[in-house]
Amino acid sequence: MADKAALPFYMRRAPEITGIAALVVGVFVFELMVRFGLVNRYIIPPPSDVLLAFERVIVEENILARCGETAFEMLVAGVSSVVVGVPIGAFLYRSALWRRALEDWVGALAAAPIVLAFPLFLVLFGRSPKTIIVMAFFHGLAPIILKTIEGLAGTRKVLVNVGRSLNMTSSQMFWKILFPSALPVIFTGIRLSWTFCLITVVGVEFLINLGGLGQLINDLAERYDLPGTYASICFVILVSVLFFIVLERIESWLQPAR
């Protein structure tokens, strides 16, 4: 390993550089293909146009307000699913009977294609951010419940025994041993849940043509603004990737070396 560190940067990072290079070359090839008429520019606009459209999308489309709207919906849904999900998970962990009865249902909720029910939520909550938030909330709830149960149940027996040997009350046991021990797993649940929330928020915004970033794509597509549509899609993907990376970072940062 020692001699590996001595390698120059471009040797150590060769794979990553190759990946980026492949991306750049791919974009360049598309550019040429469009320029030489090998690809219909009304299907795939030249990447340079898309790049230029970025500026337009950012400047003219009120992007900050849209990001804010999406972020707001996502945060309300995400925070409520934590606030509701963790106690439910803790309760199901504590009561073997309830857990046995309902854990499968929560699992089914996690796998259920809730987004598909958007017409139903439209009827229930109207064409408003409420619909989006409620749907994202339900989508984000299951992973938190499941991960809370998993985390609490995964507490090492010997730590519980330490608590018992110190005659801890059951509430001390929960707050001082079970909960801190489960926290890393709960954080994983939160990361998964918030990822779900963002996907749902953006997806539903796009589907019902309401609100922030999802609607932006829909808008531009309906205007047949090709470079704009591509640019906005790239923009939304970049934002969500950034969001995932930040969540991952927070998750690992919140866990002191274990």
């Binding site: 090492r156 027996k157 010997v158 730590l159 025994n161 330490v162 040997s165 041993i177 801190p180 021990s181 926290l183 002191p256 274990r258």
Partner: peptide
């Protein structure tokens, strides 16, 4: 009675 367990039992947090 103070107990010390066989398994690693420090609180990692």
């Amino acid at each position: 009675v103070g107990m010390v367990f066989q398994e690693e039992s420090t609180f990692p947090w």
